[in-house]
Design a protein around this nucleic acid. Structure first.
Length: 714
DNA sequence: TGGCGGATCGCCCTCTGCTGGAGACCC
DNA sequence: AGGGTCTCCAGCAGAGGGCGATCCGCCA
């Protein structure tokens, strides 16, 4: 054997390929597959004369074509490398026309393959196949008159290829004339495929080398096949792909072992009779046809010889590869006539049409009306009847009826929250929860749910259901009114009824027509009939029926610091001791209003101020709850002082009093603080107050354990 | 042997509903 | 002030829809 032509620099990375037939993708993949499906054949022929072993991988017609080709070229083409196989007979030479090509995939990091600097040649398509992350796909050029190609399958890491090259070259160096360092790879490849006869000892070395490599990789050997090319040409297609002969014999993989086991026993398990069946020992599969059985057995191996050059994914069959490539190319040949959907397979289209258009549901549940398009859905549905939960959580007692629920459940253990609100960046365990959050928190026109039995409007349907359950559900036990003997079976009806008692003057005097809402008022009234005066002034022993009367008496006659309040009419300036008198007077006086009142010059007591502020807070609270706080108020509130005009007119007297207090130097914040402390303002009020003060709302949210807490923290 | 059509597996999605913590509100 | 109740809210699970990918029986 000799290598002719292309004498390059030291093995400089020309991947030696035979020229030059360009095939369509599927054909190429098919070619490789076919080759790889023949390991036994290759192994068998390896025992024969190594110099002519390559012919055993050719069909009889190819061999005939080769014989008749006659001319054994030894010419060296400018950009071709001719692999001249030297048979034992000097007269027979087979010239394999090789071409050098560039690797066009720059994305592939060559590293250890850096020695391979391939010169691209137009019109050559070379695939260096590696079922791992090492595939180099050389783009297809114009087909022109190319007739042969070589697919070099590198089944492992590139360094393995290099190592193999070195090892095998040493084994070959005495027998193989290597014209150049460039040829080493091709020699290695060819030799590894059994194309090159080795001396006995060298063959052992070769096998040792191969086994060493096989220990590091499952598929290391290369299968080189020559086939006759075009009739017009004497060139021979040299196809190099992986050959796993030793591997399969010596160290079968688990799957392969199973497959082999099945194969070895299948004959024994053939059932005699008119119709034979083939049983898979790996699984429960049976087939009536050998072809089906064989195809099935491939599912138990890792053999996936058909590789997508776009994503390096491998497939068992050409059909699967073609479908996969269609995904890359966007080619979806099965188009739905009723919509714009298109699919890669016909089955997908049929199923789609059932789901979307025909609504045909062949799989019907025997226990309910459920029907499904797919059997798997019915199977899943039936579990809801049987209670079967085959998918057990490994960390708790939970078990689910399908895999997805278990996977989703596992997030509760891992803490994973893969869904994030794009607005506030809150994270959620489920997408639906996040969507609900966005809808309720960040959307306008949030849908509300009106209770059909009352005026309640609730944000969530589920909460409306809770509302219905709590308030409108029928209660078997009688619900009695706390004020009368009425009985109800619905909580809402009871509550509505009890409200009717709220404003009625249920306390009626036995001695007169007086009636009141509160018992304590009636107690005080009864004293007007009995003459009882239980409150005595400690300074003058004067007695009073009510405590308030005693307090007023004490302040007026025994407190030296007390300065009585004087309310002045804004029209005429006349003073009054009570605001109600001012109001009554102002109507007669013609002013029509009493928008301002003055007080005495005396210092207010703390309690007095508290009372005023409490009243202000009430008015403010009402205003806030009526949403009467306006933009003008906000701007006004920016000032440090708290102007009385801020308060709604409805606050009346309180407004004036607050203004008076503010004039004395009470700041907004102080006032609000006092409002909160003394009047127990609602959260809504404080929020409005915060808004008026121009303070960030968050200030008022601190201190709460959850978002939305309205606890004031200043 | 490849292609086709149906079956199957597996994944991800949505919709739905329940639950319990928390603050607001009322009494 | 404190208890009871209600609504808001997020967490979580049940059920089912839809489709990609693959397998298998059958046929040309």
């Amino acid at each position: 054997m000799e290598w002719a032509g292309h004498s390059g620099h030291a093995f400089h990375g020309q991947v030696i390929v035979a020229a030059t037939e360009i095939s369509v993708l599927s054909e190429q993949f098919t070619k490789i597959k076919e080759l790889e499906l023949m390991p036994e054949k290759g192994l068998k022929e390896e025992e024969k004369d190594g110099a002519r072993r390559e012919k055993d991988h050719r069909s009889p017609s190819e061999l005939e074509a080769e014989r008749t080709s006659g001319a054994f070229q030894d010419s060296v083409l400018e950009e071709e490398v001719e692999l001249v196989l030297a048979p034992s007979e000097e007269s027979e030479k087979h010239i394999l026309t090789l071409q050098t090509v560039h690797f066009t995939s720059e994305a592939v990091e060559l590293q250890d393959m850096s020695l391979l600097s391939i010169q691209q040649q137009e019109g050559v398509q070379v695939m260096v196949q590696q079922p791992g992350p090492g595939l180099l796909w050389l783009e297809e050029g114009p087909r022109q008159s190319l007739q042969q190609y070589v697919a070099i399958s590198i089944q492992q890491e590139l360094y393995s290829l290099q190592e193999m090259e070195v090892l095998q070259f040493h084994a070959l160096e005495e027998n193989v004339m290597v014209a150049s360092e460039d040829s080493k790879l091709a020699v290695s490849l060819a030799e590894s495929a059994g194309l090159i006869k080795l001396q006995e000892g060298q063959e052992k070395n070769q096998l040792l080398a191969e086994r060493r490599l096989a220990e590091r990789t499952k598929e290391q050997l290369f299968f080189v096949e020559t086939m006759s090319g075009d009739e017009r040409s004497d060139e021979i297609v040299l196809t190099i792909s992986n050959l796993n002969v030793e591997e399969q014999e010596d160290q079968p993989t688990a799957g392969q072992a199973d497959a082999e086991k099945a194969k070895s026993t299948k004959n024994q398990r053939k059932t005699k009779g008119a119709k034979r069946t083939f049983h898979c020992d790996v699984c429960m599969f049976t087939a009536s046809r050998m072809s089906s059985f064989n195809r099935h057995m491939k599912t138990h191996t890792n053999e996936k010889p058909h590789l997508c050059h776009l994503c390096l994914k491998t497939f068992r069959t050409v059909t699967l590869l073609r479908n996969h490539v269609n995904i890359h190319t966007g080619n979806r040949p099965y188009k739905c006539n009723d919509c714009n959907m298109a699919f890669v397979t016909s089955g997908e289209l049929v199923r789609h049409r059932r789901y979307k258009h025909t609504h045909e549901k062949p799989f019907k549940c025997s226990m309910c009306k459920y029907a499904s398009v797919e059997a798997s859905k019915l199977k899943r549905h039936v579990r809801s009847h049987t209670g079967e939960r085959p998918f057990q959580c490994c960390q708790c007692s939970y078990a689910s009826r399908d895999t997805y629920k278990l996977k989703r459940h596992m997030r509760t253990h891992s803490g994973e929250k893969p869904y994030e609100c794009h607005i506030c960046h809150a994270r959620f365990t489920q997408n639906g929860t996040m969507k609900t959050h966005i809808l309720q928190k960040h959307s306008e026109n949030v849908p509300k749910y009106q209770c059909p039995h009352c005026a309640a409007i609730i944000a969530r349907k589920s909460d409306l259901r809770v509302h219905m359950r709590n308030l409108h559900a029928y209660s078997a036990t009688e619900l009695k009114c706390r004020y009368c003997s009425a009985v109800f079976h619905e909580r809402y009806a009871l509550m509505q009824h009890q409200k009717t008692h709220k404003n009625e003057k249920r306390f009626k005097c036995e001695h007169c027509s007086y009636a009141c809402k509160q018992e304590r008022h009636m107690t005080a009234h009864i004293r007007t009939h009995t003459g009882e005066k239980p409150f005595t002034c400690l300074s003058c022993n004067k007695c009073f029926r009510q405590k308030q009367l005693l307090n007023a008496h004490f302040r007026k006659y025994h407190d030296a610091n007390f300065i009585p309040t004087v309310y002045k009419c804004s029209k005429c300036g006349k003073g009054f001791s009570r605001w109600s008198n001012v109001h009554r007077h102002s109507e007669k006086c013609g002013s029509g209003e009493a928008k301002s009142a003055t007080s005495g010059k005396g210092r207010r007591t703390g309690k007095r101020k508290q009372t005023i502020l409490k009243e202000a807070a009430k008015g403010w609270k009402e205003a806030a709850n009526r949403d009467e706080a306006t933009a003008e108020e906000v701007s006004t509130m920016k000032g440090e002082q708290f102007p009385g005009e801020m308060f709604p007119v409805a606050c009346g007297e309180t407004t004036a009093r607050v203004k008076e207090e503010v004039d004395e130097g009470v700041t907004c914040e102080m006032l609000l603080n006092m409002m909160y402390n003394s009047a127990g303002c609602t959260g809504r009020m404080m929020l409005v107050s915060a808004r008026l003060l121009g303070r960030p709302q968050e200030t008022y949210h601190q201190g709460g354990r959850r978002r939305g807490s309205r606890r004031v923290t200043w």
